[in-house]
Simulated assay, not measured.
Amino acid sequence: MENEEMPPGLSDALDAFAGYLSGERAVSAHTRRAYLGDVRSLLAHAASEGASVLGDLELGMLRRWLGVQSQSGAARATLARRSATVRSFTAWALREERIAVDPALRLKAPKRERSLPGVLQSSQLTRLLGQLEHSAADGEPLAVRNRAIVELLYATGVRVGELAGLDIDDLDPDRRTLRVLGKGNKERTVPYGVPAAVAVDDWLRRGRPLLARENSGPALFLGARGRRVDQRQVRELVNRLLEALGDTSASGPHALRHSAATHLLDGGADLRAVQEILGHSSLATTQIYTHVSVDRLRKSYQQAHPRA
C-alpha cells in the first residue's frame, strides 16, 4: 500500500518520520530507505486492520504484522531489525506527541542468529595479494587500482561504502593513517601498514593520473570513466577475486573486514582497539570476532591434540 492509499493520519506521520530521518538523525540513504520501507509496511498492515491514525496502533497489531513477516519467510535477523525500526518509530511518535502511549514498549524481537562471518586464512590473503601485485606490475591503471583497493580494505577493515567515499586528503601518508567517515557521520582515524601504503602510493603515482578527468574531483579511487568508484564496482571486484581463489566460501568486501578483525585479535590486539578501528558503536558487535578466533582455536586443538 502506497502513501496515497493510506488514511491521511498514517501517511502524514510517515512523511514526518521521513523528514526526521533526513534531518535530525541524518542517517544514510540506504538506512533511510530500509526504515521507511519497514514503517510503510507496518502502517499498511495497520490500515488493513482499520487503523486511521497513529493512536490506533496497539501491541497486538504490531505482533500480528511481525507474524505476517515471519510466515512470509523473513529471517530472524530481518524480524529483529524490523522490530527495532518499529520501536524507533513509535518512540519518535511519542516524543512528537502524535501518540499518548508507546505500543511497542513490550514488543519483543526474536533473538538474532549470530552466524560466524566468512574469514580468509593468512595464506589465502598472501596468495590473493601476491596475484594482485603481479597483475599491477605492468602499470595498467585498473590493475594498480584493484591492488590498492584490496590492500586497503584488508589493512583497515573499512566498510565498502567508507572506502568508496574516501578522498585523497583523507590519507595521511606520513603517519599511515586514514580519516574515515562512518555510520551516523562519525569520523574515525584508522592506521594501515606498509604494504597498503606502497600499493596506494603506486596507485596515486601510476594509476590515478591515467584515469582522472575534470569531473574526478578529490575521489581517492576512480572507475574506468574517471568518476568516483562506486560500491557495486568494489563488490564485484572482490567477489570475482575471492571466487577465483577457489578454496574459500568467503565472499564480498565484508570478508576482508571480517578477516582483518579476526587476524588482529589472533595477533593479540585489544578488543576495544579493534572496536575503534572497525567503527563499531557497541563492543558486543566486535565480540563476534572473538568467537571466530575461539572457533579456529578449537579446530586446531581437535586436529593436533592426541586426546582431543
Rank of each mutant, 00 (worst) to 15 (best):
L152S: 01
L163C: 03
G193E: 02
G139D: 06
L152Q: 03
L79Q: 07
D56Y: 08
F89C: 10
G157L: 08
V68C: 11
R81M: 07
R76A: 04
G55W: 15
E133I: 11
V144R: 11
A100T: 13
G193P: 04
T126E: 15
I168Q: 14
A155Q: 05
R98P: 10
V158S: 01
A91S: 15
V150R: 05
F89Q: 09
R64D: 11
E140M: 00
S72I: 13
G118V: 09
G184T: 01
E58T: 10
A109V: 03
Y192Q: 00
A74E: 09
L120E: 05
E113C: 04
D174M: 13
Q71K: 09
L152D: 00
T85P: 10
A77D: 10
D169Y: 09
S122E: 08
V180P: 00
K186M: 05
Q131R: 08
A136E: 05
R95W: 03
S123D: 15
R159W: 11
L54E: 07
Q124I: 11
P110Q: 04
L105I: 13
L116A: 03
D172M: 07
A136I: 08
L128K: 09
R106M: 15
L120V: 07
T85V: 06
D102Q: 13
G118R: 10
A164C: 07
V53R: 13
A100S: 14
S122T: 08
Q131T: 07
E133W: 12
R147P: 01
L178F: 14
A136W: 08
L129H: 04
G165Y: 04
V53C: 09
G184D: 04
G50C: 06
S83I: 13
L142Q: 12
Q131F: 06
E140T: 00
R98N: 06
G50N: 08
L79R: 03
Q131A: 13
L142H: 10
G130C: 01
P117I: 12
A74Q: 11
K186Q: 06
A155R: 05
R112D: 00
G73V: 00
Q124G: 11
Q124Y: 13
R179L: 12
G193F: 09
A91W: 12
R95E: 01
